[in-house]
């Protein structure tokens, strides 16, 4: 298997007068996880969106396996999963329907797989309820089930543990551990810190 890396090279980004990303560089190899820390407004989400290719940085570049991701954005997107801080769910569909459409757009999906993923996040009893009736933590769990169904090489997670109880946080830890064990990479923006049980963590502090 070729060496897989995600690299960012001296990223700079301004939002109006604000210099949000001030020369961020990072390099991740297979099986490693980067924890992006920083206060509210430090640019954690912005960094993730730049890494995903949604935002163009004013300076610097993002490299996947040494190649600028801009050269073939669609191929890059096929190997990454991005989870924003709001779960991308439709309020008027059930949890199961949401996953069926959201994940189905990306990959073929058997209903047994869907059941297994919903079971993993403890959603089996309420997965046929409309998402509008679910709590914020339950919605987050549905999003995690979606993540479990996307074993692509690179995960970009924005505050994956928000609104989750202890058990839910453990699910996040477990998913990340699995991702790392199979040689995947994770970049997670966190305010509260990832579950302590994770190893191979590197921290990037955007605060100073």
């Amino acid at each position: 298997m070729p060496e897989q890396t995600i690299e960012a090279d001296n990223l700079h980004l301004w939002r109006g007068e604000r210099h949000v990303l001030r020369g961020v560089s990072l390099r991740l190899a297979r099986g490693s996880c980067l924890e992006v820390c920083g206060a509210n407004g430090a640019g954690k989400t912005t960094l993730l969106r730049v890494l995903s290719g949604l935002i163009y940085p004013e300076e610097g570049r993002v490299l996947w396996n040494g190649e600028n991701v801009r050269r073939d954005l669609r191929a890059f997107h096929a190997v990454l999963a991005y989870l924003g801080h709001e779960p991308p769910l439709k309020a008027d569909l059930t949890a199961r329907e949401n996953l069926h459409y959201w994940i189905g757009v990306r990959r073929s999906l058997e209903s047994e797989e869907l059941d297994a993923a919903l079971g993993r996040v403890g959603a089996r009893t309420w997965c046929d309820r409309l998402v509008r009736t679910l709590s914020a933590g339950q919605r987050r769990r549905v999003a995690l089930a979606g993540l479990a169904l996307l074993p692509v090489p690179l995960w970009l997670l924005d505050e994956p543990t928000t609104n989750l109880d202890g058990e839910g946080r453990e699910v996040v830890g477990e998913l990340i551990r699995e991702q790392l064990a199979r040689g995947g990479m994770v970049v997670a923006a966190v305010h509260h810190g990832l579950p302590a049980s994770l190893r191979n963590l590197t921290r990037l502090d955007l605060a100073a």
Partner: peptide, 25 residues
């Protein structure tokens, strides 16, 4: 000058045995 982070690939460490990625769906 800016923020720099580099992870030593955990799998490059001696003794680390990467499980192969599952057959992609």
């Amino acid at each position: 000058d800016g923020h720099v982070a580099e992870t030593l690939g955990a799998l490059d460490a001696p003794g680390a045995q990467p499980r192969d990625l599952p057959a992609p769906a």
